[in-house]
Write a protein that binds this DNA or RNA. Sequence first.
DNA 1: TTAGGGTTAG
Length: 468
Amino acid sequence: MTSILRHLSSATSSRRVINKFDSFLLLHYHTNSLKSNHTLKHYLESGEPIKALLNFKQRYRESPRFIDSFSVLFAIKASSSAHKGHSFMGQQIHALVRKLGFHSIIQIQTSLVGFYSTAGDISSARQVFDETPEKQNVVLWTAMITAYAENDKSVQALEMFRQMEAERIELDEVIVTVALSACADLGAVQMGERIYSQSIKRKRRLGMDLTLRNSLLNMYVKAGDVEKARRVFDETVRKDVTTYTSMIVGYALNGQAQESLELFKKMKRQDSSVSPNDVTFIGVLMACSHGGLVEEGKRHFRSMVEDYNLKPREAHFGCMVDLLCRSGRLKDAHEFINQMPVKPNAVIWRTLLSACSLQGNVELGEEAQRRIFELDSDHVGDYVALSNIYAAKGMWDEKVKMRDRVRKRREPGKSWIEMGNNIAEFVSGGGDDDGKLMVGEISEVLRSLVTSGAFTVAVTGVVASRAA
DNA sequence: TTAGGGTTAG
């Protein structure tokens, strides 16, 4: 059977090859596979991937002959959407793919890349990509580039995007969307603009794609360029909830609380086709937090639950804690944390800790630090924060203890900067003695040096001394 | 006669 597949896969039209292969199977097995595959598909669509996996496993044990490429594909999909604990199952299915010779079927390979990406196993994803015999396919490349982007490797994602362009694979709206998202992650606006303008020059319709435009808008938001973001927003005729949300978050992040809340109001008033979702409310709560609007924030929080039937998640509770902390109501924040229906995570305690650091509240600060430590996710910054509280209170012995713990735990940071058409990556030696010079600041320093024309100084001076 | 890839937050 494997040899038949190999023979078939060497033909030029892969779609026809696969159909031929399936009719070959169906000739023997009739509707059995089809019916069972529909069952698998049904489980997937109704959000029951575990049931799909069990069904697949049972079928494979009882009548392996009824397993065709469709069954395997659905099983891979199920492994991706099932919880992380099932990644072993996915690996077994991958072994089965090899055994059955399905690795030349592009849909299977693409789906496997996605599976490994979800599992956070980027090197296996790349292996699947490399092992795919026919790579002149934009969907396969998109899956791999998305895998890099999803796993915090945007530099590699853009490198691969460039490679793809060199291979002259035709771009479509999906791959451009992903590329822009990677640019957004790195703050590489110039590169994103180049990618966008070149792609709409080649295909005008790409500029009309809503998801792609949302990605472009988001890139400007991430880079803090609210004006350009607003231009994209205004030029987007039919907007969806993501368009509004990105802009609302954009204003909130850049300190324009009023504009953010105005837009939210306008969205509810004018655009009846769009209803806010949980992410929209994160933006709204962020705006209230930055604008110091405690009562308005509380009102939106209630409205989210009562008017829109949305269940607040950790992020929303986090925003509320942030809101209370920023306005100096540390006790209220502490009370709010204790009354939360979900277990507070480290991020929430950290919000309280840094507020305590700003206001010099030793007692609450120590509690927050203890909680973070219990959750086993303490960062260098936590010790810095507490050490600052002690310093402000003149508690020098305690401060020194904290500083020693900082010294032991320094980790290198990374930062990126655009250099014409390139993105350079720098690895710093960690923070300074107080752990204060963090990645963002290094990046800021570099950027200002480059824009002021002191480019060489930035690379040989600041970076070299930090990278040692 | 059922197949593969996308945006927002965290």
